[in-house]
Write a protein that binds this DNA or RNA. Structure first.
Lengths: 166, 166
DNA sequence: ACTTTGTTTCAGAATTTTCTGAAAGTTATG
DNA sequence: CATAACTTTCAGAAAATTCTGAAACAAAGT
């Protein structure tokens, strides 16, 4: 396989993976392109490469920077912004986990706390509270696990991975 | 909070969470409704409750049954199918993980194997291979971890959770 | 073998998400 | 301070996803 073909395939595949993971397709493709590009790229180069509009490139780059998956780099003597990707996969996963925990898990926990207090003492209300409590305790455990994961460094991941495996 | 209000809130919230997780909104809402309903429900009851069409209810119920998140139950003397949810949260997570591993992670691993073999010995090709190899090894580790998780039972989860925490 | 009850399918409609392109905004430079 | 280089914003367009309703299908009862 030719290098160009390999690059295109990887970008395409990463885009698909991303869209299944709450990162939109283009956002993931930009990330993929930056991952496999050793030097920093300008918005213009990204646009041209992925055949997307300037507006689209700009919005998704900003989101990537917000998520901490891409860094803005200023080159001396250049007015343009350049972008490079975070290339440590472990860091990438942690950052995505942090975003999604905040955006998705935390709101659910809040709702669970609220609905756990429904009034009524009928059998129906009891059943409802029972299952809500179970989901709640599971979610809290997931929340704490994510906290650990988000704070942990790469070595921790490796060692937990080893523990899991045995 | 009234029971009815609590139920509605939970269904709504679970729908939102689901749609962020590759399970479509309605599918997650049906699952939520079944979770908080002690007895099995018919397609008709689900339709009425969530105000969705029969076609929609049918398609999403089938998907839930495929995923193993909901079971079809036949009641003696009834021609209708009835549905109950898998209520063990740990099992729910495992089943979702299994589906997503197959649908998302495995195709990416395949592509990574392919593109890892690009020809060319320039510095560009070397850099490309280097990052691909890193992503590959990370993904393989994730793949194996997921296998362990999918096979494991609830006690394993608890004990790994404890290990992670210390 | 007809009717009734229930399920499945799927084309087009509705909705949601993402993208474009042009205009407005910002900052550096002569 | 005028112009050029670049970035940001956002309304409407385009694309992708999900939903509906009606028709086809299936199975059981009479």
């Amino acid at each position: 396989m030719k290098l160009e073909e390999g690059k295109a395939k990887f970008i395409q595949s990463w885009g698909t993976l991303g869209s299944a993971w709450g990162v939109n397709r283009t956002m993931a493709q930009i990330h993929a392109l930056l991952l496999i590009t050793p030097e920093a790229l300008s918005a213009q180069e990204i646009m041209d490469d992925l055949k997307i509009s300037l507006g689209n490139a700009n919005m998704n780059l900003r989101a990537l920077v917000d998520w901490g998956l891409v860094y803005k780099q200023l080159k001396a003597g250049e007015r343009k912004d350049f972008f490079i990707a975070e290339k440590d996969m472990w860091d990438v996963v942690r950052k995505i986990a942090a975003q999604r925990k905040k955006k998705e898990l935390e709101p659910v926990l809040k709702i669970l706390n609220e609905v756990a207090e429904v009034e009524g003492s009928g059998i129906e209300a009891e059943e409802f509270k029972k299952i809500i409590t179970e989901i709640q305790s599971f979610s809290q455990r997931a929340d704490k696990s994510l906290d650990t994961l988000i704070k942990a460094d790469s070595n921790w991941f490796l060692s937990t991975f080893m523990k899991m495996m045995k």
